[in-house]
Amino acid sequence: MHETVVEMLARNTEHAEKPDARFDDIQNTQFPDAVTICCSDSRVLQDDMWGNDVPGEIFTVGNIGNRVTQPTSMGHLVSGDVMFPLWNTDTKVAVVVGHTGCGAVTTAFQYLTEDVIQPRGVKYCLEQLKPHLKEALDVLPEDELSDVAAINHLVEYNVDHQVSRLVESEDVPEDVTVVGAVYDFQDVYSDQRGKVHVINVDGETDVATLQDENPDIADRIGRLWEYGRTLTAEQT
């Protein structure tokens, strides 16, 4: 057996040695409080970022680029792995989580600006990011930004796009709250690596409005880019 799997199984032994009672009420059912749609990047700790080690609380969905839809013969539909908890487990919160330095957004950016060779499966995923990221490039203040900074702006734009897909979908129940956030481990938003920053709530992206409407988490709300102007570090 590959050494990596052996090490993973050893860590699983520690996990399994925790009290069995964690599963008592959820062995046959689940009612998670939220569904999170995160990038599947290995640096994004989908449960740990929320301090969660309780089974049954968060329904986690992961893919490159934290995408919420899939192309079908009927057009783009919210993917089944996102819709399942919203329809079947009475989950009322969906959180789209992008992250600084996103590899999928970086590769899509390169795909739009230069020749990039990728396997067909990866290319298929990038094709779903390309259209809206191309739109973003047309309004991005690119002369003022390095490629690294531009990519982190596009991370926000991608989160906003995914949130809008959920908000505008007829399949998503109206009473579901949709939040867009960025997980930062590159000291872009603050010096606290791993901190989650809220950038969008139900399609609203104006920072001042979001802070006024959510005073209890006002210090967790901030953006790098409000379309039309680039924010300084002090403003985020």
Rank of each mutant, 00 (worst) to 15 (best):
E57C: 00
T205Q: 14
L77A: 02
D160L: 00
R43C: 04
V163Y: 07
H15G: 00
D143C: 00
P71E: 12
V35D: 06
T209G: 01
V95P: 04
Q162M: 10
C38N: 15
N52W: 06
C102T: 07
A108S: 14
R223L: 10
T60N: 11
V97F: 11
D175E: 12
G101C: 01
E57T: 15
T13K: 15
I58V: 15
N214M: 10
Q118Y: 06
G228T: 07
A94P: 06
G121R: 03
P19L: 09
E170A: 06
E142H: 12
L137H: 08
T69D: 10
V68L: 08
W225A: 03
Y189E: 08
S190L: 01
V6T: 08
R165M: 08
E17C: 02
E226Y: 10
E7R: 13
A34V: 15
V182S: 02
G101F: 07
V68F: 09
K130N: 01
Q162I: 07
Q27W: 12
E135V: 01
A136L: 01
G180H: 12
D138R: 11
P55V: 04
P119A: 02
L129I: 06
R229H: 15
P173A: 05
V198T: 08
L145S: 08
Y111K: 07
P71S: 11
R120D: 15
D138F: 03
D184V: 08
R22T: 00
T106K: 14
S190R: 02
M83W: 12
N28Y: 13
V122Y: 05
I221H: 04
G98P: 09
H153N: 11
V188E: 14
A104N: 02
D219Q: 14
E234Y: 05
G65M: 05
F109C: 05
E168L: 04
G51E: 13
M83L: 15
V139E: 10
D33H: 13
I199N: 05
V95N: 02
Q70Y: 11
T29R: 09
T60R: 13
V116K: 07
A108R: 05
E234K: 15
E57F: 01
G101K: 02
Q128P: 01
D171S: 09
F84W: 09
Y157Q: 12
G80N: 15
T107L: 06
T107N: 10
L9P: 01
I26N: 10
V6M: 09
Y183D: 11
V198L: 10
M49N: 06
T13F: 07
T236N: 12
K18S: 04
H76P: 00
V68M: 08
T230H: 09
P85A: 06
R220W: 12
W50V: 02
A136V: 11
G75E: 02
S164Y: 05
I64P: 03
T232M: 03
G56E: 07
Q30R: 12
F109M: 11
H153K: 05
D191L: 07
E3W: 07
A181D: 07
L140I: 11
I217N: 04
Y189S: 01
